[in-house]
């Protein structure tokens, strides 16, 4: 069936050969790139969440200096193109990290491309996550938090038992959007030479001159990633919204 379809148009068979998973096909490279993209996106999303939780709590409950610093952070990151942030953080980030480690009396480290990619995109994600989570926390009814305090819970307990579970359904749509941005932003790392899906695609396209075939194939892979993760987030939302009588997005 597939064989006869391929014979319909000669270009189709050539494309199929180029995309074969085993060399001389380049499909294996593309998939390896896709896995790298996913790893970076997951790492950056997780790091962004960590920064976002800290940032949101700092913006809501921190002192004036903390708040101002966080405002600068989120404003700058949301106004400056990711490409420029990536270049700045990629080259300057290594320097800064090693100086920081030296301050702490540690030996300098060599940053792998993977860690640098995750770090850079994580910092970008963190700014957006800060805003998403701040909005969600603010939407949690004050009375619930006060009630928890009245029970004698510590601030950490309040966050873990009351604030976090109550805000999660409110934050999920924003977070799902952030995850999609994370997967697509990994493509920008192609410009700093990290071998994720877009760079692998560019290499394959450059080597074979089949630009159209490879860019289209990469587009399909990205689309699959976003469609599948969209489903996962939809399922999560449905699940967490159950039993949340008062929660409305």
């Amino acid at each position: 069936m597939i064989e006869s379809l391929l014979d319909l148009w000669p270009g189709l068979r050539a494309s199929a050969n180029l995309l074969a998973l085993e060399p001389p096909g380049w499909g294996g490279n593309l998939l390896r790139g896709a896995v790298n993209s996913l790893i970076i996106a997951l790492g950056a999303f997780a790091l962004g969440l960590l920064i976002g939780i800290g940032g949101a709590l700092g913006k809501l409950g921190g002192g004036p200096v903390t708040r101002d610093l966080l405002a600068v952070y989120t404003t700058v990151v949301r106004a400056v193109p990711e490409l420029i942030l990536i270049l700045l953080l990629y080259y300057a980030g290594t320097d800064i990290l090693n100086q920081l480690l030296a301050l702490l009396g540690q030996r300098p480290v060599e940053i792998s491309g993977l860690a640098a990619g995750i770090g850079v995109l994580g910092v970008v994600q963190g700014a957006y996550a800060t805003e998403v989570l701040r909005g969600a926390i603010q939407a949690v009814p004050k009375g619930q938090i006060e009630a928890a305090r009245a029970y004698g819970m510590s601030p950490v307990q309040v966050f873990r038992r009351v604030t976090a579970p109550a805000m999660l359904p409110l934050a999920l749509p924003g977070l799902s959007n952030l995850w999609l941005i994370a997967t697509k932003d990994t493509a920008l790392l192609a410009i700093v030479g990290f071998s994720e899906l877009t760079l692998e695609t560019r290499q394959a396209a450059g080597s074979t001159r089949a630009y159209f075939t490879f860019f289209l194939a990469a587009g399909v892979i990205y689309l699959l990633m976003t469609l599948v993760s969209g489903r996962v987030f939809g399922w999560l939302e449905a699940r967490y919204r159950r039993g949340q009588a008062g929660a409305r997005a």
């Binding site: 999609l180 697509k184 932003d185 990994t186 493509a187 920008l188 192609a190 410009i191 877009t198 695609t201 560019r202 396209a205 001159r209 089949a210 630009y211 159209f212 860019f215 289209l216 990469a218 587009g219 990205y222 689309l223 990633m225 976003t226 469609l227």
Partner: peptide, 20 residues
């Protein structure tokens, strides 16, 4: 499709893909 794929890839597909 537009929202599910990176803009960088869309730009390259339109420029180099069509050009090829």
């Amino acid at each position: 499709v537009i929202r599910g794929t990176p803009l960088l890839l869309q730009i390259w597909l339109l420029y180099y893909g069509l050009g090829s």
